[in-house]
Every structure is written in C-alpha cells, then in structure tokens.
Amino acid sequence: MVAIDIASSIIFISQTGVGSLGNSIVLALYIFTFFTGHRLKPLDLLITHLAFVNNVVLLSKGIPQTIAAFGFKNFLNDNSCKLIFYFHRVARSLSLCTTCLLSGFQTIIINSKSIRMANFRSRMPKLSILFCFLCWALSLLINSNILVHIKGPTESRNVTERWELIYCSSFNISSHIPIFSIMASVLDLVCMGIMVWTSGSTVLILYRHHQQTQYILCKHFTPGCAPETRATQIILLLVSMFVSFYMFNSIMVWYIRFFKPSLWFVHTSVFLSACFPACSPYVWIMGNSQILRDCVASWQRIKLLS
C-alpha cells in the first residue's frame, strides 16, 4: 500500500466512525425523549429522519471506500455494487430533501404571526410525515437508474462506454435513461433553490426582529437566547454547510466523470461528500442542550424508580 492509500483509509475510517456515532447519538436522544413522554417539537421528526439518512450515507459510502483504500478492488460483485450505490444515492437525495424541509419549516415557524401561518404550524407534525414519505417515493424512483447502469468491477467492459468508480464501474448515464438524470438534477436544483430562498427570508426576518426588539439579540447560542432563535441559527448553519459541501462535491464529481484525475482527487471528492453527514449531528447537539438536559433528567427519574 502506498502512503496515500494508508492516509485515505485512516481518514475514511475516522470520518465514518465519528459521523455515525454523532448521528446515532441524535437518534438515541430523540427516541429516548419520545419514549419517556416528553413533548417533541414540530421539527424533531425531521431531525431524527435526517440523522437516520445521514447514517446511511456515511455507512454506504465510507465502508466500501475504506476497503478500497486498503487495496481491495474487487470485493463487490455486480448486485452488491448496485445495492450499495442505490442506497447511497437514495440516502443522499433524502438528506437533501430533509434539509430543505427543515429550512422551509423553520422559516414558517418564526414567521407564524399570521393566522394562515399559525394554522400551518399546528399541522406541521402531520405534514412532516407526509413530506418525508413523498421524499422517499421521489428518491427511490429517481435513483432507480442506478440499478441499471452500475456494474461490478470484474465484468468485461467497453472502455469507451464505462468509467471507473474505484470499486465498481458504470455505464455512461447520458446514453442510458437520461430522463432520470434530468429528474435528479431538477430535484437537486429545486431543493437547493428553496434552501437558499428560505435561508435568505429567515435572515431578513431575524434582522427585522432585531430592529424591533433586543429580545433575540444573542451570539454563539448563549443560554439567554430565545429557543426558536437558537434553532433557527442552527438550521441556517446546517443549510450553509450543506450548500457549500454539495457545490464543491458536485463540481469535483463532474470533473471526475469527464476527465481522469489522480486518485487523491477522487478520495477528496468522497471525503467532501461525507462531510455534512459527519458534522451535522454535532452542530445540532451543541446547539440544543435542552434535549440533553431532558434526557439526563428522565434517566435520573428512571434510576430513582428502579
């Protein structure tokens, strides 16, 4: 193994392990909160869903990428490649949709003074479930082309029509089922546009509130800050992270597809694609100390009763 493979293996193992641990903690905290009878906030379902799909993104990409970095190139067959890439792409699309829903719903929450917005907010938990199912349906359908054009690395291949994915290979999607590629691109652009628009609206709303009152004047998630303002700041940070990592990774993926860069460039692209799933749970944990205090209090009550 060369030095770049050893370094890549260590980085992918660390990123996958740390990210999976963070998302698992978020899942455990919200599940524990639910079963101990605490009232969940309107966005808690989306946060739980985001932690779950981020775990799938990390595991479906980090584990095979780590194995490939250790020098094992043909450890997956045709069906395994299809399933792993399909799960990864579906989870990646769901992460995008869920982050978009978080941004949009939080904008509605802080702008719920009108009667229409207040009524919408009261129905938000049911709408969250409905939108999650819709995101699943779209993601499963749009990414179904993965089951056609992804192939294992051991099959005979026409070099003019296929390109390597380190441990799998793929037909050129532009010549096979282009409608799915167009649909995926449109969905990504729509979600990114909604996130940018809602984030801008949220910043404008917070600025106007700041001009009217000093109540929400706070920095760095201080304890005196209003809970809704803290949540808004966290979601704005998550959206900014997602958009930044997504744009950089998309540029690198298109470059890899049309050119043949060095191996370190491919590894860097994979690392960037997993940065948001790995970092987002810790942003949410550090910004929401209330749920940690609720879980600790519930655990102490359980110990006393036992």
Score class of each variant (00 low, 15 high):
A3Q: 14
A7W: 10
S9E: 07
S9Q: 06
I10D: 12
F12Y: 10
F12V: 00
S14Y: 02
Q15G: 05
Q15R: 07
V18K: 05
S20H: 07
N23E: 03
V26H: 03
V26M: 03
L29S: 01
L29E: 03
Y30A: 02
I31C: 12
F32I: 08
F32T: 11
F32R: 11
H38L: 05
H38P: 01
F52C: 09
V53R: 01
N54Q: 06
K61V: 14
G62H: 08
Q65N: 13
T66I: 02
F70Q: 15
F70H: 13
N77C: 10
D78G: 03
L83N: 08
H88Y: 06
V90W: 01
S93A: 11
S93E: 11
L96F: 05
T99H: 02
C100A: 07
L102T: 01
F105M: 11
A118I: 02
S122C: 04
S122K: 10
L127D: 03
S128K: 01
F131I: 01
C132K: 05
S139T: 02
L141V: 13
N145G: 05
N145V: 12
I146Q: 07
H149W: 15
I150S: 01
P153H: 13
S156L: 11
N158Y: 07
R162G: 02
R162V: 14
W163R: 08
I177M: 14
I177T: 10
I177Q: 15
I182R: 08
I182K: 11
V186W: 04
L187F: 13
L189C: 09
I194F: 15
I194D: 09
V196L: 06
V196I: 12
W197L: 15
T198N: 14
S199C: 08
S199G: 09
T202M: 15
L206A: 10
Y207G: 07
T213G: 07
I216P: 00
A226M: 06
T229W: 09
A231I: 01
I235N: 11
F242H: 14
V243T: 04
Y246C: 05
Y246W: 14
I256L: 13
R257E: 14
R257V: 08
L263V: 03
H267S: 13
T268V: 07
F276P: 02
P281H: 03
G287N: 04
N288R: 00
Q290M: 04
L292G: 00
R293Y: 07
A297V: 00
S298C: 03
S306C: 04
